[in-house]
């Protein structure tokens, strides 16, 4: 798990640091490096503490700040998604590290975790980045349709959640 967290954090940090260095924002790059280092130390030692939640907020603010420096949203989106994955992994699977496990199983687990973190993160980031370049003329009808679609999605989500809860009980 430490390996997974380290790789995810390193990738997330480099996605913010490298564009910042190219744009000449050295202070920002240094700040990201410091926060990521602290994040790694924290997720390594106490992944289930309140501090890791605070760290997630700090990284989110830094990712948002990156947009104002002129860094492309694609980098910020992938970075924040990967960091969320790392935070989640530390939170949920931190206790695995205390018990030894076969090397082969550990490698398989690391590969699976990296795959399930990187693939959806990139997919979501590409879709969102592409959507930034799509221009839709929002007429009254389109607006109403979009609102109804969003409303239906939320209703479906709540309905699904309730059904699943009932099934569990």
């Amino acid at each position: 798990m430490k390996r997974v967290t380290a790789i995810l954090l390193a990738v997330a940090a480099s996605l913010l640091i490298l564009p910042a260095l190219l744009l000449g924002s050295y202070g920002y790059a240094l700040a990201v490096a410091v926060v990521s280092g602290a994040g790694f130390a924290l997720l390594r030692t106490a992944p289930q503490s309140k501090w890791s939640d605070l760290l997630l907020i700090a990284v989110s603010v830094m990712a948002a700040f990156a947009l104002f420096l002129g860094i492309h949203p694609l980098f910020a989106v992938v970075a924040i998604t990967l960091f969320i994955y790392a935070w989640n992994a530390g939170l949920r699977f931190g206790h695995f590290d205390r018990s030894p496990v076969e090397d082969r199983a550990k490698q398989q687990f690391t590969l699976q975790m990296l795959a399930v973190a990187l693939v959806p993160s990139l997919a979501v980031a590409f879709v969102l980045s592409a959507s930034l370049y799509v221009r839709i003329r929002l007429s009254f009808g389109t607006g109403i349709g979009l609102s109804a679609a969003v409303f239906l999605t939320i209703a479906l989500f709540i309905g699904f959640a309730r059904a699943a809860r009932r099934k569990e009980d």
Partner: peptide, 25 residues
């Protein structure tokens, strides 16, 4: 009215919703 910021808001929200669905399933 910042598109990039809106795009950045999507992963955490999407992630939270998917987490809830996955947990229930």
């Amino acid at each position: 009215k910042h598109g990039g910021m809106l795009a950045l808001a999507v992963p955490p929200i999407l992630y939270s919703c998917l987490c809830v669905i996955s947990t229930l399933q």
